[in-house]
Design a protein around this nucleic acid. Sequence first.
DNA 1: TATGAATGAGCTTTCATTCAT
DNA 2: CATGAATGAAAGCTCATTCAT
Lengths: 242, 242, 242, 242
Amino acid sequence: MAKTATKATAKTTVRKTKKRSRSAPATAAKEDNASRRTLIEAAKKEFARNGLFGSRVDEIAKAAKINKQLIYYYFGEKDNLYLAVLEDVYTDIRAHENALDLGSLDPVAAMEKLVGFTFDYVMDNRAFVQLLTNENMMEAKHVKRSKVIKSTHTPIVDLVSQTLSRGEASGVFRPGIAPVQLYISIAALCFFYSANIHTLGILFDRDFRSKSEMAERRAHVIDFVMGSLIGGKMLGKIHSRS
Amino acid sequence: MAKTATKATAKTTVRKTKKRSRSAPATAAKEDNASRRTLIEAAKKEFARNGLFGSRVDEIAKAAKINKQLIYYYFGEKDNLYLAVLEDVYTDIRAHENALDLGSLDPVAAMEKLVGFTFDYVMDNRAFVQLLTNENMMEAKHVKRSKVIKSTHTPIVDLVSQTLSRGEASGVFRPGIAPVQLYISIAALCFFYSANIHTLGILFDRDFRSKSEMAERRAHVIDFVMGSLIGGKMLGKIHSRS
Amino acid sequence: MAKTATKATAKTTVRKTKKRSRSAPATAAKEDNASRRTLIEAAKKEFARNGLFGSRVDEIAKAAKINKQLIYYYFGEKDNLYLAVLEDVYTDIRAHENALDLGSLDPVAAMEKLVGFTFDYVMDNRAFVQLLTNENMMEAKHVKRSKVIKSTHTPIVDLVSQTLSRGEASGVFRPGIAPVQLYISIAALCFFYSANIHTLGILFDRDFRSKSEMAERRAHVIDFVMGSLIGGKMLGKIHSRS
Amino acid sequence: MAKTATKATAKTTVRKTKKRSRSAPATAAKEDNASRRTLIEAAKKEFARNGLFGSRVDEIAKAAKINKQLIYYYFGEKDNLYLAVLEDVYTDIRAHENALDLGSLDPVAAMEKLVGFTFDYVMDNRAFVQLLTNENMMEAKHVKRSKVIKSTHTPIVDLVSQTLSRGEASGVFRPGIAPVQLYISIAALCFFYSANIHTLGILFDRDFRSKSEMAERRAHVIDFVMGSLIGGKMLGKIHSRS
DNA sequence: TATGAATGAGCTTTCATTCAT
DNA sequence: CATGAATGAAAGCTCATTCAT
C-alpha cells in the first residue's frame, strides 16, 4: 500500500534533455487555431494507442501533416500536448454529459438512459478510455496539475445522486446504495469492457468488438445495474429493455 | 521443451545482419534460475509502473542488482522480458483461482467469496492490473503470442458458471444471467476501481487508497453483485455481510 | 524521386515497435547537401579501410566533424550510408569511363589507353577497390538492391567490344576473344594488384606500392594484354586447349 | 598514395575489452586436436563469409557445436583464431602447389597445367580467396606477424620462373616477361573472377557461378595467358609502349 | 507561421571475454 | 576439457528539443 505512494517522483527516469524554455508562448491568437486542433486530434490517436511514452512527437507531426516544430511553438513540450489532449477529451465528455436531460424522465428510465449513455460513450470513444487508463498508470500526474480538468466537475455524479434519490423516494429503488459507489460501478461496468476488450477476447475466444457482442454487453450492463437497484426478481415487470 | 521456443530455425548459415536471432538461448537449465526470477520481479514493478515503453532496461537491471546484459542473455530482448512478466502474473492469478474451493459452499456464500477474492486480488496486486491495462493498450499483442497464457484457461469462468447454475436451481438467484457477462461484470467492478484509483480520487476528491475507502468499496461491490443476482429488496434477509 | 525510395508505405497506423521505418526522410532538398557529401566522403574512407562491419558510425561522424545523429537523419541506418558510398564510387568511375574517347584512336592505341586508364584508376582509387572487394564478400547484397548502380551500365564493356571488333576487322587483333572475358581480364590484371598489394608484398618481399614497382606493373599489364591480343595468330597451331 | 600507409595503426577502433591474459596456453597436446580442427573449419567459413569484424565468436562456436570458452582455451582471442585460419589455408594451398609436378612436362603443357590448377583452386576454395581479400583490407597485419606464413615460400614462383625459362630457351615463349609479373597476372586472372563474382554477375547480368560460365572463363584464362606468352614474337614491332 | 537542419543525451542491444564449477 | 553464467565496454540507433532562416 505504502508502495503505491512512493515512487511517483522517484521513478521518472524518462529521457530528460536540457529543457530551456518551458511554457508555450500563450498568445491569445494561439488558443483556437486549425493547426492546433489538427495536432490535438492526431496526438489523441497517438497517445491513446501508445501512451505518453510510446508516442513519438515525430509521428504525431507526421500524422497531422504539420511541421514538428509547430508542436513546440504551440505546446512547448510533449507533456503539454499530452495534457492538452487530456483536457480535450475531458471537455468533450462533460459536454455530452451536460446534454443529458435526466430530470424529465422517471427514475427507472433515467437510470437506464444514463447507463446506456455511459456504455455508448466509452465504446464510441476508445481514445478517451485509453487515455484515462494511461494517465492512471502515471498516477494521474497530468490531470492533477490541470486546472481545467479539476475545476470542471462532472454533472453525472449529481445526476446519479438525484435519480437515485427520486427512485428511492418513489420506492422503486432499494435504499442504501451510495451514489458515488453506484457511479463508479456504472462506469466500471462500461469502462472495463472497453479498456480490456483485447485480453477479454483472448480469454473467452470471442470478438467482443463485434456488433452483436457489444449489444449483448450493453443489455447486460443495463440489466445488471437495474437488477441491483430494483431487485432482480421483479425486473421484467417494471422496466422495459432498451 | 524450452528448446522448441528457441532459435532452432535461426541457424541458417546466411548472415542475418539486422536482427539475428532474438529469443534467449532457452536451455532447460535456464528456466528456473535465481537471477531470472529476480529480474522478472524487478521488471514487474518497472513495467507496472511505467508500461513497456516507459520502462528502462537499465532501471530494471539496477533494481534487480543484476548486470544489465544478463537480461539479454536470459530474455533476448526487452519485449520478451515483458512477456515473461505477463506470463508470470497470469500464472500467479491462476494459481490463486485454482485454490478457491467454491464447490463446498452454498451458492450465495460461494458468490460472495468469489467477488471478495477478486476484489482483494486486484487491490493486492496492482501490478497485475496495470500490466493488463498496459497490454490492452497495445492490443494484447504480447498475450496473443503467448502459448502459456492462451493455453491456461481460467477456472473462474467455470466457477462462476457452476455457482450461478446452483443458485438458479435452488431459486436463490434470478435466471437469465449469462455467466460470461457476469464474470466480466465482477471483474469490472473490482478492476476498474484498482486501475483508475487516481483519477477517481481527483474526481471525488477522496483518497480511494485508504483502508476505509477500500473497505467501503469492497462491501459495495459484493452488495451490488448479490443485489443483482438475488433481488435487492430481500438482500438484507438472505446474506450476511462479510 | 527521392520520395519513392522512402517510407511512404511505413506510414501504417499500427505501431511498429521493433524497427519502425528505416530509410531516411529523403526529401529532394536533402539530396545535395554539404553535410551529406562530407559524410559520404568520410564514410568512404572508413568503409574502404575497415569494411562495413569494421567501421564505426562514431568514427565516421568524428572524421566528418558532423554530429553523429545527422547520419541517421540523412541515411536512416549504417547500411544505407554504406550503400550511398557504393553508389558514389560507382558513379565516379562511370563518369571517368564516359570521358574516355577511344573511338578516335586506332585499335591498338585505344586498347592501350583503356588498359592504362583502368590501371591508373584502381591505383588512384584504392577505396573503390576495397569497397568492391568488401561488397563481394557480402555477396553484393547492397549493390543488388541499388537501382542507381544496376541501372547505370558501364560504357567500358561497349568500348572494349567495339575496340576489339575494330582491331579484328583491321587484322591487328586475333579473332575469337570474347569481349566480356577480355574486359574481366583487363580489370583482373589491374584490380588484383591493387586489392592484394599487401600480401603480394609479403610474398615477394617487395614494396609494390613504390613508384617503380607500380610503373613496372603498369607496363607489364599493358604488354601482357596487348601480347595476347596481337600475338595470338598462331596460337591454335602451337598449343592444344586442355 | 601516402594515404595507404598511414592509418594502419591509428584506425583500429575495434571493440577493446580489458585483455588480460593474451597467449593461449600452448601445450603440445593442444596442437592437433579434433576440437581445434573443428573450430578452425567452422571459423574458416565464418571469416570467409563475414570477415574478421563481421564474424561472431558465438556463431563460430555454435557452428562448430563446441563451447565458446574452448575457443579461448585454444586460441586465447578471436584474432588468434583468425590467424590460425589464415595459416591453415596458406598451408593447404602450399601443399597442393607442391604436389604439382611441372618439371616433367613440356613448357606449354606445364604452363597450361599451372594456370588451370590456379583457376580450379580459387574456384574450389572460395574461402581462401575471401580470407586473403579480407586480410588485405586490413593491410595484411595478421599475415605479417605469422612466422608460419612468412617462412613457407610458395614454390609456384619458382615453378613459373623455371617453366618460363624453359619455354624461352626452346623458343616457344617470347622473351622479356618478368616471372613475378607473370605469376601475379596468372593469379589475378583467376583470383579476381572468384573474388568479385557477385558484382560481375550484376554488371553483366549473368550467373558466373554456373558451370558453363566457369568453364568459359577457365578456357579464356588459359587461352589469354598462353596467347600472351606464345604470340609475343612480333609484339615489339607492332605496338609501342605508352 | 513554417520548415529543414542539427544536436545532446540516452536507450536498447551487441559482443568479446572471463568466471566458477 | 567442458559448460552455463556473468560482465565491461562499446556500438547502433532513438527521440525530444532547438537553431536558423
